[in-house]
Design a binder for these strands. Structure first.
Lengths: 165, 165
DNA sequence: CACGTCGTTCACAAAATTGTGAATACTCAT
DNA sequence: ATGAGTATTCACAATTTTGTGAACGACGTG
């Protein structure tokens, strides 16, 4: 037998690239802006702890300016952190520890805002006993429920998630 | 005392209209297309069981063509059903029973697809013991967890939601 | 302190989205 | 069948988004 039994399959750069673009498109279809999607998935699939803007520009074949915008967007979302460049002049971008968990947590507030605005409509519509009021009330209750459930689910995740290596 | 103690506050048409546009904008910011957002919220806030394309066009001040597109999109999403026009030639559009619950249910599959594509990347990256593989694995596990939790949460909602009048 | 290397910003170009008006195709009642 | 009233489609216009190249600015290094 070869002593390479445990050796990892060599990285298929082209395969990764294609899948990355595919996943980026899925995200884009969900309403996530294109370039940030591509940058995000590129970061996810990189065999490096951090990448510079130049790296990203090269791998995606786009201009530095496009990276600049996408990176700012992702940092704003909490999907990326800028490493204060240790020895180099270049800024290094890195994914935070649990990017998806973090962003999901942050997005939770939306449900609350939406529910609150629903209350405004219910009032303006003449109360919960009108047709419009009923619909809005149903929606509001559902969203409030979701918000709460997401909250407890995220807690549960933190408790039971597989220990990191 | 007046016998109108129980009377609903008169509907504030302008207030409703403004709030509707506001909520539509919130949805749009979340990545939901504009016109469908506006149509959806208009339906939600209507004091009618169903509306015709003409009604919607009038209330939103847009062309029939715009309504046609938005309505098709919403039907596709499961946010709207077309009533087979009882006595009239006009198609009547109506919100299904639990629109938000239904759409949430339908959207659940996305997490699965995304997770599956993640598996492809993990493989192409050389397995879960690579940096890229680790990140992707974490994401995949989180998404699978979310999918499952959303599932049970939705069940719970059906059991405990306030009985309809 | 000047140079070289990056990152950001700006004005503009390209492209995708969104909505309109007119033409076309349906559908039902007569 | 015919015709009035609707819905859909099409080509186009307007807007918005997205990305580029070049100029500008910041910062560490020789």
């Amino acid at each position: 037998m070869s002593d390479k039994v445990d050796a990892v399959t060599p990285r298929d750069e082209d395969g990764v690239r294609r899948s990355v673009e595919h996943m980026a498109m899925m995200l884009a279809d969900m309403g996530f802006p294109r370039m940030p999607s591509r940058v995000l998935m590129t970061m996810m699939s990189a065999e490096d702890t951090s990448l510079t803007a130049g790296d990203l520009a090269e791998r995606l074949g786009v201009s530095a300016a496009a990276i600049s915008g996408a990176v700012r967007y992702l940092m704003q979302m909490g999907f990326l952190v800028r490493e204060p460049a240790p020895g180099s002049r270049r800024d290094h971008y890195r994914l935070p520890d649990q990017p998806w968990y973090g962003v999901t947590t942050a997005k939770r507030g939306f449900y609350g805002q939406f529910s609150d605005e629903a209350d405004v409509v219910i009032d303006a519509a003449g109360g919960a006993r009108t047709l419009a009021g009923e619909r809005m009330t149903d929606m509001r209750d559902f969203f409030r429920f979701v918000e709460e459930q997401v909250g407890t689910a995220l807690q549960r995740w933190q408790e039971q998630r597989p220990p990191r290596t």
